[in-house]
Structure formats: C-alpha cells, structure tokens
Amino acid sequence: MCDNFMKRKNHIIFFIIFILIFSCGKNKAKEEKEKNDVNIARENEKLEAEKYNGYVQLYNHLLQIDEYTGYYFEVAGTDKKMKRPEEKINIPSIDQSIIDAAKENIAKVPEMKELDNASRELLPVLSEMKTLTDQMTAYYGDGNYFKNKTLREEMHVNFLEITKKYRILSKKFKEAFSNRSKEQKRKIAEKIKKEGKLIEYDLMTFIDSCEEILDEIQREKISAENLTDADLAKFKELEAKMTASMDKLKNSAENQEMLKKEHYHSSDFTSFLLYTERFKEAMAKFISRVENKEKLDPKLLQNNPSLKNESGTPENVFHEYNELIKEYNKIAK
C-alpha cells in the first residue's frame, strides 16, 4: 500500500511539474509572439513613415515648381502671345533626383493606392516639363532674352500647354497627399500625445486648424472672383479655432520646462511664430473682405499669378500657408 501511495504521489508530482513546465513554455511562447508582433508593427510603421516622407519630398518640390511657374507668368503673361520681358525671367527648376526617388517610392510597401496612382500619372508629365524647363533655363541663363524671338515664343506656348497638364495632375496628387496626410497626422498625433510630447502635439494641432481653413475654401470653391460668396460664419468659426490653437502653441513654446523636456530651445520657434502671425493676418483680411463684400478690381483678376500677393484673397491665404509650412518643416521632428 505504501508503494502504491508513493507511486501515485510520484505521478502527481510529475503531473504538477509537467503542468508547470508546459505553462512556463506556453507563457514564454506567448511573450515571444507578443515581442515579435511589436517588432513587426514597428517595422511596418517605419516602412510606412519612409514611404510617406518620400511623398512629402515630392509634394514640397511641387510647391516650389508652382511658385516659380507663377513668377514666370507674372513676367511673360498667360496669353499665347508672350509679353515682352521687362523683368527677370524665372524658370522652375525640376530636380531629376526627386523624380527618380518618387518612381522608386511607388513600388515600396505599404501600398498607398491613391497616392501611388496619382504619382504614376504625374511623373511622366513632370519629366516632360523638366526637358522644356531645362531648355528655357539654358536660353534665359545668359540674360540675353531677345536673341531668338521665334524660339522664345515657341517655348512660351509649349510651357503654357505643359503647365495645363501639370496643374491638373499635380492637383490630383496634392488631393491624394492631403487625404493621406490627415490619416498619417492623426496616427502621429495620438502617438506623440501618449509620449507626452506636448509641444509637438500643439504644433500639429495648429497646422491642422490652418488646413481646416484651406479645406473649407476648397469645399466652397472660393477664389478671388467669388470670395464675397464665402460662408462668413463658418470662416469666423475656423478662424477662432485656429487662433486658440495658435495661442496654446505660443504658450508651450515659451514654457522652459516643456522646451527642455522635448529638447527644444525657444529660438527654434522664433521664425515660425512670425509666420503664424502672417497667416493669422492673411485670414483676418480675407474675412474682412467677405464681411464687407469687398470685391477685387477686375484688372487684378486678369493677372492671376499676382493674386497670391493680394491681401484678403483666398490665393494669398494659400500662399501664406505654404510659407508657414516651409518654416514648420524646419522645426518638425
């Protein structure tokens, strides 16, 4: 009987040890799986961020092209018959390395269907445009604009035509980028808030509030021609939201404890905060025009490229936003 009891006891001990070993093995396997899942998630986040940043580079380059295209038409005019150049001719400089990088970016994972497709359509036109702008740069580079009238006017007509195609496809890309950007920023905002990076969070919140204004301008299809039709109450609401987020950001940028914690210095924000004021002023003048039903001089409407410098126009609001983003990119981490 004693032997039977000992055997049963040994079996019980063995069974308990087996359960413990199996349980430890199971817990270890679970921990390994969780660790592996975290590593995969981090790698996916990294790949997504890298691909998105590639499109950020292309987007920023398009803004530069838009800016210099505007400068060209200010001097040369937008009619088929080129105006006699009285000032310096500025030609957009299109970077081949950015085109090449964008081509590679399309094939990278993860798939960003809307952006990938928009880029695929845009890049051939951008390459075609580059061939022409390189020719124009070579022609105008020596400052002698009048050496070949026929060539000068031919390039002007070709530039008008390629710019029409470019604007359609770059708009499509920018819309796709805007959609992806909102999703990307939402993810980043959640992450940095959890990490306690409140200055970065306030920066993103302010930029989002500015973008809401631009989205509303586009939603209402407001331009210099019909700006008095804008929804005044809606724009005042968005202006108040933008001003509140701007004030919060200013307070954060002056908080020495927060600056130290997030490895910033107050001087990092000096230039950016000046541009926030410029954007705020542009928005205030736009609202003033809407409120007072102040239409633009028809002569100004004829010279479309100069509208970005005309205070109170939607085009000026967009221009000041683009200038603001250039400063934001200098400090965004």
Rank of each mutant, 00 (worst) to 15 (best):
I331C: 08
D215T: 13
Y139E: 02
D134Y: 05
E43Y: 10
I222N: 05
Y140E: 01
D208A: 10
N44V: 07
P85M: 08
N10P: 00
F18W: 08
M1Y: 02
F15N: 06
Q256R: 11
L198A: 13
L300W: 15
T163R: 06
A233N: 14
E281Y: 05
S267Q: 07
E183P: 00
E257T: 15
R167M: 01
L203V: 02
A41Q: 05
I99H: 04
P110R: 13
A189Q: 00
E281S: 15
T228N: 12
T313A: 07
K333R: 09
E104D: 14
P110K: 13
S271G: 02
S245A: 12
D208W: 02
D142W: 08
K164S: 06
D231N: 01
E154N: 07
L132W: 00
I94F: 01
E291W: 01
C210A: 15
P124Y: 00
K147T: 12
S267K: 14
H319Q: 10
F269Q: 09
L115E: 02
T133W: 04
A176I: 03
N158V: 01
I16F: 11
G77M: 11
L151Y: 09
F22L: 05
K234L: 07
N117T: 11
N90G: 04
K108P: 03
R8P: 00
F73C: 14
S23K: 03
R180L: 09
S209P: 03
N303E: 14
N144L: 10
A332K: 09
L122P: 00
N10E: 02
V75A: 04
T205M: 02
E175M: 09
I65Q: 11
I12P: 02
A49P: 02
E323K: 13
K46T: 15
R289F: 13
K88F: 04
M1T: 05
L47V: 12
E31R: 03
N53K: 14
I325Y: 08
K9S: 02
A101P: 01
D202H: 11
F279I: 06
D116F: 07
K130V: 06
L273S: 04
F22Y: 00
E43D: 01
E67D: 15
A189C: 03
I325W: 05
E114Y: 05
S271C: 04
E291M: 11
Y72I: 14
I207M: 11
E34D: 03
A107E: 06
E87W: 05
K28D: 01
K187A: 05
S97A: 14
E320L: 04
C24W: 00
I16M: 08
E323H: 08
L122W: 03
F173Q: 09
L47S: 15
K28V: 06
M129T: 06
M155Q: 12
F279E: 01
A102D: 06
S127T: 10
R42P: 01
T69E: 09
R219K: 05
A49H: 13
E104A: 11
N105G: 10
K80L: 12
S119I: 06
G77E: 09
V109I: 07
C210W: 03
E34A: 10
A102V: 10
L227G: 04
K330P: 02
E237I: 10
I94R: 08
E153C: 07
S93L: 09
L132M: 00
E225I: 05
G54K: 11
K333E: 00
E43C: 01
S181A: 13
R186G: 07
